[in-house]
Design a protein around this nucleic acid. Structure first.
Lengths: 112, 112
DNA sequence: TTTTATGCATAATAATTTTATGTATTACTT
DNA sequence: AAGTAATACATAAAATTATTATGCATAAAA
């Protein structure tokens, strides 16, 4: 992740949501998708991405499927059932975070 | 900071914005203000807050003014000029972050 | 009078990410 | 044909940030 330090803690949410939307993806593909969607504003670093994928897999959130394209190895990741549940939870957390930050930063968003 | 790990990296933004809005505040007051605004959803931990205030002071973003209320010491923090500039920058970063996260998480927010 | 609230502080630990590497295949350019 | 850029994985050391656990002390409330 290369950008502001605000993105700290957002990596898992991003990975889960993209997998939720795209069925299966491999690591490099995720980095490219993020660059594309954010118009180069956010670049996932490999040193953050791969350990995060491995951890999610170890936690049973993702299932891996190794594929070979020519002589090159690809690891396709897919959400498990638990991963899908976790995605929902993470998205709710993000909405809550955004709501709270908006309230903190903009008095207009503070309700009585 | 006690909540999701999404808040990692947001502490400085929160502190600067509250000081920008309230002219001067002391540490404990900041924790209470955050609780109030977020309706207890976000609790700043002292172990995070005080070191952050000290660091911002060392960086020249904040100016301290010690005050005594009864026998109790309070440290009022106030933005310096640099601190005010930094606040503007941090708020812009937050908006950018929210925009990017919305795009990542909600296809509706992706523009061509 | 004892608990809760106010008010500061720091140190050890944990978690997450950056930076720096490393390996290897494939495509593009000159 | 050779060199560079892109694709694709991986990990380890260092840095950053926050949590947890303390510690001290005053003031208010039960």
């Amino acid at each position: 992740m290369k950008s502001t330090n605000l993105y700290k803690g957002s990596l898992v949410t991003i990975i889960l949501k993209l997998l939720n939307e795209n069925d299966k993806m491999y690591g490099y593909e995720i980095t490219q998708k993020v660059k594309e969607i954010t118009k180069n504003e956010l670049q996932l670093t490999e040193g953050a991405l791969y350990p995060a994928l491995h951890k999610l897999e170890a936690q049973g959130m993702l299932h891996v499927e190794i594929s070979k394209v020519g002589n090159r190895v690809r690891k396709y990741y897919r959400l498990t059932e638990d991963g899908t549940k976790e995605t929902v939870a993470k998205l709710a957390e993000l909405e809550s975070y955004i709501r709270n930050m908006r309230a903190l930063v903009n008095p207009k968003f503070r309700e009585g």
